[in-house]
Simulated scan of single mutants.
Amino acid sequence: MTIALIILIALFGALVRTVFGFGEALVTMPLLALVGFNIQASTALIGALGLLVALPATVKYHTKIDFAVVRRLVAGSVLGVPVGILLIKTVNRSLVLHLFGGFLILYGAYSLLKVLRNRPGKAHLHANGWDYLAGIISGTMGSAFNSHGVPVVIYGTLKRWPIDTMRGILQAHFVCVGVIVVVSQVASGFWSMEVVKLLCIIVPLLFVVIPFGNWLTAHIASETLVKYIYMLLIVFGGLLFFR
């Protein structure tokens, strides 16, 4: 029964990533902890699945990807990874999670309110240097809390990237960072035969989940999807704040 629940949770995470472009770790990690799945195995499983889901999405949206932006984001992420490791070793974890969660709730609620009032606002952070900073924050939050997608999403909403552009940049970023994450997790001993067996069961099911997620996405208007993304940021903020 536990294995079935783990598989369902992982597939739900893959569906969330396919539809919204991010957030599978924030959804799945708390749920996997609730069913008693080992934290290192959970991290390895979700890291590998995140990479696998990002690959076809990158191919699908490759014409929308600004690869110069991706290179700057990835360069910043590489710099941010050791910062995140230092963060979890020196700063109170609960404090950081509460601050980050509170920020997501406030930002998501504020942005959602503006959209509902038809006041989306102007694009911000035009200079290319902001890409590096967004990448650093992404790498920091990714290595510390498996939340590397959320900072990039917030950055994309501030820059008012079109939805497909955001999807393309997000997934290309995930592929580059995901390779680094998976390799580091393998080197750190996070992988086990249990993770491999679960992947052997889950990966074939992705051929059903990913097309279904793409079908759902195709039937959601871009304006509606933006609202859902802000709602998701509020939910994720709540998950982190009350973790």
Rank of each mutant, 00 (worst) to 15 (best):
V53E: 03
L199I: 05
I7A: 13
F242H: 10
A172C: 03
L95Q: 06
G50F: 05
V150A: 09
F103G: 03
W215Y: 15
P162L: 00
K60F: 11
S147Q: 04
A187N: 09
V175A: 08
P162H: 04
E223F: 08
T58M: 13
L116F: 14
L15R: 05
L113W: 11
I202Q: 08
V209H: 13
L133P: 05
K227E: 14
G149N: 07
I88W: 01
F174G: 07
I46T: 03
S143A: 15
Y228D: 09
A48Y: 01
S94I: 08
L170M: 14
R167T: 01
N92P: 04
T165R: 11
A41D: 15
V35W: 00
Q185C: 06
I39K: 11
G139F: 06
A48G: 15
W191L: 15
L232D: 08
L73E: 03
I180H: 00
S138G: 13
I6H: 05
A44R: 07
K159F: 07
N38I: 00
P120W: 05
G108R: 00
V70M: 02
V16F: 05
K64S: 14
V203K: 09
A25T: 04
G36E: 07
K89I: 02
S94Y: 08
S143T: 06
A4T: 13
R17G: 04
T63I: 12
V19E: 05
F241L: 15
F100K: 03
I46H: 00
Y132L: 14
L15H: 06
Y228Q: 12
G139M: 00
F241V: 11
L104T: 05
Q40H: 14
V153W: 05
F174K: 00
A25Q: 09
V209M: 11
G149F: 06
W161R: 02
G50H: 07
L233H: 11
I234Y: 09
L31H: 01
Y155K: 05
A25C: 10
V186T: 01
V91R: 04
E24H: 14
M29R: 07
L116I: 13
I220M: 13
I9F: 07
K89G: 10
A4K: 12
F236P: 02
P162M: 06
N128T: 15
L45H: 02
T217Q: 12
Y132G: 14
V53I: 10
L34W: 11
P211T: 05
L52A: 12
F174T: 07
S184I: 04
G121H: 13
S188E: 11
R243P: 03
F103T: 02
